[in-house]
Simulated scan of single mutants.
Amino acid sequence: MDKMSTEQKILQRMDQENTGSIFINADFLDIAKSNTLRKSLKRLVDDNKITRILDGMYTKLEFSRLLNKQIYPSPVSVAHAIARKFNWYIFPSKNTALNMVGLSTQISNTYEFLSDGPYRNYTYINSEIIFKKSANKKIKIDSDSLVTLVVALDSYGKSNINLKEINIITSYIIENKITIKILEQNKTIPGWMYQLISDILKREAEK
């Protein structure tokens, strides 16, 4: 049986994940050495078998039958891939978090994240992804979705949350698969937020 080429091994690994997942060079370092890997990835891009998102970041684009076109990963997904590439811990700024959760309807093409890395600015399609260095150490939560919700709730304020906001938050929790288990693993979040999310999860479980 013929041995698989480096390109075939890369494609096989990408096919094991959901279409649209973003990969970085480090995800393939067990397949080939850096120089060989770069050449193989370039060939795959040149052959239109994969798409280069940013330097050292690749994906197999998802095709939307509804829109009849290929869909690029979201700027938020790209931001997290960048953070993974450089081993940064990131969380969204207040305005970005509010937009991601749906508590703000203000349209913006700028996605701002705070991180323990340096200041960086990336242009991705028609969006701008900005990383700002932050000394904030208090937000250490093992769930990107929950971090985003905590930042959004902190910005929105407890006194401003009514039925409309609860419905929006509920949709976000369901869509992003925030569970009781995830919540229980992160009990350091402010008490009122913990109670709000816990109550929503309990109501959904009873339906």
Rank of each mutant, 00 (worst) to 15 (best):
I71A: 07
T36F: 05
E206W: 10
A205E: 11
K60P: 00
K207H: 13
E112V: 10
L11Y: 02
I200V: 08
S143A: 14
I71K: 12
R13W: 06
I189A: 08
W88P: 01
L29V: 06
I182V: 09
E165S: 12
D116K: 01
I200P: 01
K158N: 06
E7T: 07
Y72M: 13
L44A: 04
K39Y: 11
I71P: 01
T170H: 05
D199G: 00
K138Q: 12
L196K: 11
S5M: 05
M193C: 04
E165C: 05
E17S: 14
V150I: 15
S143Q: 00
K138I: 06
L37C: 07
Y122T: 03
S21Y: 11
S108L: 12
E175V: 05
Y89E: 14
Y156E: 01
G117A: 03
S5L: 11
M14R: 07
E165N: 09
T59M: 08
L66R: 11
L54K: 06
N35S: 14
A81R: 13
L41S: 07
V78Y: 04
K39R: 15
S108E: 12
V151I: 15
L114I: 02
A79D: 04
L61D: 02
I22Y: 05
T59I: 07
T6R: 08
T51K: 15
G20D: 04
N121R: 15
F28K: 03
M57P: 00
Y89D: 14
S108D: 12
N126H: 12
M14I: 09
S134E: 05
S74Q: 08
D30V: 08
K60L: 12
E62F: 13
M4L: 15
L41V: 08
S5D: 04
Q195W: 03
N35A: 12
L54S: 09
K177Q: 12
K164W: 09
E165L: 11
F28V: 01
A81M: 10
I50P: 02
L29N: 10
R13E: 09
V78E: 07
E204Y: 02
I90E: 01
K85N: 13
P73C: 01
T96A: 10
F91H: 15
S77N: 14
T96C: 09
S64L: 02
N136Y: 10
D2Y: 10
K177W: 04
A97L: 01
K3P: 00
S34A: 12
K181F: 05
S64T: 03
Y119A: 14
S74I: 02
S108Q: 12
N186I: 04
S134H: 09
E184N: 14
E17T: 06
Y72Q: 09
V78D: 07
V147L: 10
V78Q: 00
T170M: 08
A79C: 09
R203T: 00
M57E: 05
N136V: 03
K3W: 02
S115E: 04
N35L: 11
L61E: 06
M100S: 03
Q106V: 10
Y58D: 01
